[in-house]
């Protein structure tokens, strides 16, 4: 009997990251509780450090396995694709619950908020100012990420970096404008159900934009280090899928919360 294998599966090596990840998230949550009760962030910061180090090193290992060890056969890649698809579907349902809360409260507004939407004495944002600009920015970034993808499929190194760079810049621009709008907001998260649903939905979307921008930034760095080829770039595709998802969520947020709810 030979001890050689003949299968396309990736049997992963022993890794400390699941354990450090568990320790990190436990520390993070405990640290958050400690922060809320004692106004002391020390344990929270330790939790952040352990979790961030785990994330960095775990994903670094995956890049090494795929790029430098050739572990990602077609079947493995298919598994990664399914993983990303299912992850994004779970995120869709995550946002669905925020939209549910929004429509529940806005379609039949309670007497407590003046039986009207936006609630009595809430001044919402004008949807045709910064939010419309943000819509244009995100749609444009969807175009540039597609440009980068097509450049990558055509083996064009320069245009892939250019397309990715512009997409990341647009993502950062979006985040800056959202931060500016949050600072200027005439209502807060504690201002009635309007503030709660508004900041919950747009806040989580903003968090996703930041994560998506980081994901694309990692792709740009990996591209600069020649990790991708025209038929081996699933990391990039996953980032692009994620970015489109964030883009589509924004369109729904814009149409229902900013525009219809104005």
């Amino acid at each position: 009997m030979t001890n050689m294998n003949n299968h396309p599966y990736h049997l992963v090596d022993y890794s400390p990251w699941p354990l450090t990840g568990a320790i990190g998230t436990l520390t993070l949550v405990t640290g958050m509780v400690k922060w809320f009760h004692n106004f002391n962030m020390n344990l929270l910061i330790l939790g952040y450090m352990i979790t961030l180090l785990t994330m960095f090193q775990w994903w670094r290992d995956i890049c090494r396995e795929g790029t430098f060890q050739g572990k990602h056969t077609m079947l493995v890649s298919k598994g990664l694709r399914w993983g990303m698809i299912l992850f994004i579907i779970s995120e869709v349902f995550f946002f669905l619950s925020f939209f549910w809360a929004f429509f529940h409260s806005s379609l039949s507004p309670n007497i407590e908020i003046g039986s009207m939407w936006p609630p009595m004495s809430i001044t919402p944002f004008n949807p045709f100012q910064i939010p419309l600009l943000n819509t244009i920015i995100l749609i444009t970034s969807g175009v540039t990420v597609t440009w980068a993808h097509h450049a990558l499929m055509e083996n064009n190194f320069s245009q892939t970096s250019q397309g990715l760079f512009i997409t990341i810049m647009l993502g950062i621009y979006f985040s800056i404008l959202q931060a500016y709008e949050y600072l200027e907001a005439p209502f807060t998260i504690s201002d009635s159900i309007y503030g709660s649903t508004f900041f919950m939905a747009t806040g989580f979307h903003g968090l996703h934009v930041i994560i998506g921008t980081l994901f694309l930034l990692i792709c740009l760095i990996r591209h600069m280090n020649n990790h991708f080829s025209m038929n081996h770039h699933f990391g990039f595709e996953a980032a692009a899928w994620y970015w489109h998802f964030v883009d589509v969520v924004w369109l729904f947020l814009y149409i229902s919360i900013y525009w219809w709810g104005y």
């Binding site: 003949n6 299968h7 396309p8 430098f68 060890q69 050739g70 572990k71 990602h72 056969t73 077609m74 079947l75 083996n155 064009n156 190194f157 320069s158 245009q159 020649n226 991708f228 080829s229 025209m230 038929n231 081996h232």
Partner: peptide, 30 residues
């Protein structure tokens, strides 16, 4: 525009063996 190298040259390990097998006409290397 700077172009990227041949994807087959870029691949390594089992991934490359699979690509070479497919190229040589074996559509079921495993």
């Amino acid at each position: 525009d700077k172009m990227m190298p041949d994807p087959l040259e870029h691949a390594t390990g089992l991934e490359k063996k699979e690509l070479l097998a497919l190229q040589s006409g074996d559509d079921d290397p495993f």
